[in-house]
Design a protein around this nucleic acid. Structure first.
Length: 281
DNA sequence: ATTAATCCCTGGAGGC
DNA sequence: TGCCTCCAGGGATTAA
């Protein structure tokens, strides 16, 4: 599932392949992928537009076009593929194809059809729906400790749930939420407002560190991008908790446990990440 | 206003 | 082998 680091890797890959290309036609094979406007207008308005740049905000890709912004969210399994020449037959699960004037094409694939695209007026992507509500990017420069601390202070939800809420900080998904909580040694079910100042600082710092590390790892394979733009960059970073049910915690060897938090599968170390503080000795 | 539950989708895994 | 059920999950929507 693409989270911020994966989307960033996809962004770089797509950018170097399609920047400067002009759309000549668009095929939409599954209408519900297009959230706005209706498929007919979406297709028509894209014709003749040139891709000036490819940006990202949180987990959203933003294609900067000559006269519009195209927003694309990959959700669970969305992937982009690039072909130098149009394919006679498109693979299964191909839902949207952008044809360019030079004969090449960018196609969108999505087995579960959860991904969404929206075409909005030029330079308005960041104020479209939930993009306008996104929290800060998880970088040193933008992710302020004080705002994060305040957000947690007023929330009684489980910290894991709070981290998945994109208005807290943008870009964390189920994998990295588990990873940063493991790194910060915080139990995923701790109420957000029960974290000590020390824990909030540790969590804040780990969010920046873990995502930066993942972005850098994903970025190392960019040059090999010709196909499957959503695949590379996945699991380039070793995971410590997510998907490690029953395996020893890399810190203390206690088996990793899996529970449900807010309907989401959640992995943690019951020794390093305790719900109640042990009596200090 | 805040938060929790439901829904969208399909393929893969496990049971029998 | 094949049929059935269950599970995975980001974010929009609906409900409480």
């Amino acid at each position: 599932m693409p989270e911020l680091p994966e989307v960033e890797t996809v962004r770089k890959g797509i950018k170097q392949l399609v920047q400067g290309k002009t759309i000549i036609s668009v095929d939409v094979l599954w209408d519900r992928i297009i959230e706005y406007p209706d498929v007919c207008d979406f297709t028509q308005e894209l014709i003749g537009q040139t891709i000036l740049d490819v940006d990202r905000r949180g987990k959203y890709l933003i294609f900067k076009l000559s006269d519009a912004d195209l927003i694309s969210h990959l959700r669970m399994e969305g992937k982009y593929d690039f072909q130098e020449k149009s394919l006679v037959e498109n693979p299964k699960h191909t839902h949207v194809i952008f044809h360019f004037t030079d004969g090449s094409q960018l196609s969108y694939h999505d087995v579960r059809k959860f991904g969404r695209m929206a075409l909005v007026p030029k330079d308005t992507a960041l104020s479209y729906k939930s993009l306008a509500l996104l929290g800060p990017e998880p970088t040193e420069e933008t992710f302020e400790l004080s705002a994060f601390q305040e957000k947690l202070h007023y929330s009684s939800r489980a910290i894991k749930t709070q981290l998945l809420d994109q208005t807290t900080v943008a870009g964390l998904g189920n994998i990295y939420a588990d990873e940063v909580l493991w790194e910060a040694k915080i139990h995923p079910e701790r109420p957000a407002n029960s974290l000590t100042k020390k824990e909030v600082i540790a969590l804040h710092d780990m969010i920046i560190i873990v995502l930066d590390r993942a972005v850098k790892a994903g970025g190392t394979t960019i040059r090999s991008y010709t196909n499957a733009l959503g695949e590379a960059g996945h699991f380039q970073v070793a995971l410590n908790a997510y998907g490690k049910t029953g395996q020893p915690c890399p810190r203390c060897q206690t088996p990793i446990v899996k529970i449900k938090v807010g309907q989401r599968g959640t992995h943690f170390c019951p020794h390093c990440q305790q719900l109640k503080r042990r009596n200090a000795k």
